[in-house]
């Protein structure tokens, strides 16, 4: 308990930063769930591929710790571009390969989950085996920096040195912390505006509310679904960059536990609800940091799962309710 009080500011800032990452990944779950009513189990791999794209692009550009401010901005911008492109691409491929054929056949939802689990295995193992796969093509030497030790942690070359910006109750809040939290919130606001203002956003909401009526009104369901996956993927790409800046490493199986956490955040806030995802992410990030300060870090994940169960029991629709369209009974 004393630890919690002494480090309250540090725990809060870390909780918000990691919560922001959860929130951005949660968007992908919430979006797809809102439109298709299924848990996109492979979304965690979308995040993972984005994180690798971000690391690789920094390696290609030769990013290092002594870059000028302009260089650092360029590197970070390129990380975003690479990660968002990669994640968006992977998300769309998942939809095309693992979901659309099933939808065409009206398969039961359980089967979609199995297909998604399969896609998730394939994607994460392909990344975990990239050294061997590169060897098939005789590229393992050329690409050594990118594919060697493919089952180990891959660090992001340090490009920003975390520097204290201001002091909050004894904790130096760093530039990275501020960037992650503010950046994530800004992205959410943009997305929220996109969904409520743009034509495509209205299409998404229409399909979420009532797919048949939306089809009758001329909304192209397949296109809406593709856009839904794309947007979720792009957000996961952004999440990957924020995650790397804060945590600094990734690996081929990083997605699984993060994905489960992000899904928890989505349910916590009210699945299908964009603002709920943001709130759920922050609540989860804070709760697991405070909780682990009280009962010990090794119980961190237990704290977040217990929180999920308790919330579902007392508020089954999540904190903000389900409302991409409206909750269907």
């Amino acid at each position: 308990m004393q630890f919690l009080i002494d480090n309250f500011a540090a725990l809060t800032i870390t909780g918000l930063a990691i919560g922001a990452v959860y929130a951005l990944i949660a968007l992908g779950y919430t979006f797809v769930y809102g439109v298709l009513r299924l848990i996109n189990f492979a979304h965690s791999e979308v995040f993972m591929y984005g994180s690798f794209a971000a690391v690789w692009v920094v390696m290609i550009l030769g990013g290092n710790v002594s870059g000028s401010t302009g260089q650092v901005i360029f590197w970070v911008a390129m990380m975003f571009v690479a990660a968002m492109l990669m994640s968006g691409f992977v998300a769309v491929v998942i939809e095309r390969v693992a979901y659309r054929p099933l939808r065409k056949r009206n398969a039961p939802p359980l089967i979609a989950l199995i297909s998604a689990i399969g896609a998730s295995f394939v994607l994460s193992e392909a990344m975990g085996l990239r050294e061997k796969i590169a060897r098939w093509f005789g590229l393992d030497d050329t690409l050594r920096d990118y594919v060697s030790n493919s089952r180990n942690n891959v660090p992001l070359p340090t490009i920003i040195k975390p520097q204290g910006v201001f002091n909050l109750f004894g904790y130096e809040v760093t530039n990275v912390d501020i960037f992650v939290i503010v950046g994530a919130i800004a992205m959410m606001i943009v997305l929220d505006q996109f969904v409520s203002r743009s034509r495509l956003g209205r299409g998404i909401r229409a399909v979420a509310m009532d797919p048949e009526a939306a089809a009758l009104m001329g909304v192209n369901r397949d296109r809406v679904i593709r856009v839904t996956f794309l947007v979720g993927g792009v957000m996961a790409g952004a999440a990957a960059v924020f995650y790397l800046l804060k945590i600094g490493i990734t690996r081929y199986d990083v997605g699984f536990i993060l994905g489960v956490k992000a899904f928890t955040a989505a349910v916590l806030g009210g699945i299908g609800n964009l603002r709920g995802a943001l709130l759920g992410g922050f609540v989860l990030g804070l709760a697991e940091n405070y909780g682990s300060a009280i009962v010990g870090t090794q119980w961190k994940d237990v704290v977040s799962f217990l929180l999920l169960i308790v919330i579902l029991l007392f508020r089954p629709t999540g904190l903000l309710g389900e409302s991409l369209g409206k909750a269907r009974a």
Binding site: V260, Q298, W299, V302, F305, L308, L313, P316
Partner: peptide, 27 residues
């Protein structure tokens, strides 16, 4: 407590339960 919540939530609650059991064993 959990079988009263909606079907698709049951999936995630049970997923959490499996992890809680494992982490409790570890810790």
């Amino acid at each position: 407590p959990t079988l009263r919540v909606r079907g698709d939530y049951l999936a995630i609650v049970t997923l959490g339960f499996g992890e809680i059991v494992r982490l409790t064993l570890v810790n």
